[in-house]
Simulated assay, not measured.
Amino acid sequence: MLRTATDGDVDIIRVLRNQEPNREVSVNAHEISAGEHAAWWAKASVDPTRRVLIYERDGVTAGVVNFFDLELDAEPRTGAWGFFLDAEGLAERGETLPAWIEVMKDATNYAFDELGLDELHGEVLEHNAVVRQMNRRFRFVEGEPQTRYADGREITVFPISLHKDNRRKPKGN
């Protein structure tokens, strides 16, 4: 289940984002400080082109989904997204794969059914082979790789996109 993040979620968002498995697959891999996180939340929580959602599994916070660069008044209606899970907690409970599939279903449904997007964009690091494979299962298409420098390292990033007509349809549709 996805719900809108609140001020009460700020600390857990930072804790989950700073888990080593999440930092390893992020463009910015450094540990986020309390001050940096507070500044991000102050902007993100009032940005009309952004939605920060909490992914809950069995009533427990299990991840965060970010939608950003939302162009809801444009044609086509577009937006970007990213997410991270409670890698440590889900692994401990043996729920990583089911949670991952569920959050991707919930997030793509939210993008196309709630936000009304025509196209959803994102990016994935080249070395994140497991996520790249899951993205393909959800019918995301990879674009040409781009080289960037972040946190003192060179990384290769693949842009990804999914058009609403190519998505896996929710059951019953």
Rank of each mutant, 00 (worst) to 15 (best):
E88I: 15
F138D: 07
D47V: 00
R136E: 07
K43I: 12
V130W: 05
H121R: 06
P48D: 12
R132L: 06
V27M: 06
A129D: 12
L120G: 07
F112G: 02
E123K: 11
T61L: 12
L117T: 04
D47P: 03
N135L: 09
G79R: 00
G172I: 03
G172V: 08
E123H: 14
A74F: 11
G122S: 10
T4I: 13
E20V: 10
R93W: 01
R132N: 07
E24A: 15
F67R: 07
R136L: 02
V15I: 15
E88T: 15
K169A: 15
T108A: 09
R167W: 15
R132Q: 04
L16R: 00
D113M: 12
A44R: 02
A150E: 05
N28M: 11
I101Y: 10
W81I: 00
T4Y: 08
V141L: 09
S161T: 15
R17I: 04
K169G: 13
G63E: 02
K164Y: 08
V131D: 12
D7M: 12
R168G: 12
S26K: 08
E114Q: 13
A34S: 12
G35D: 08
I32R: 11
N28W: 01
D165W: 14
L2E: 06
V27W: 05
A44N: 05
G35H: 10
E126F: 03
K105N: 10
D118N: 07
E123T: 12
F84K: 01
N173R: 12
N22I: 05
R50V: 11
N135Y: 04
E31P: 07
V25N: 13
E75Y: 13
D58K: 04
V103F: 03
E92I: 01
N109V: 13
V15F: 09
V141F: 03
E24H: 13
E119Q: 11
A38H: 06
A87V: 09
A150V: 10
A39H: 06
E36T: 02
A38K: 09
R153S: 14
G63P: 00
L72W: 04
F84A: 03
Q19A: 04
N22K: 04
G63M: 00
A29M: 00
N128M: 08
N173F: 13
N28F: 11
K169H: 14
N22D: 01
D106N: 11
D58T: 03
M1I: 14
R93F: 00
V65E: 06
V141R: 07
F68E: 00
H127A: 13
R14Y: 04
E154K: 15
E56K: 11
V103A: 01
F140Q: 05
I12C: 10
G82E: 02
A129S: 13
V27E: 02
G172P: 04
R167P: 15
I160H: 05
Q19H: 01
G152Q: 08
A80Q: 13
L85Q: 01
A34T: 13
G143I: 02
T156E: 11
R50D: 07
R14F: 10
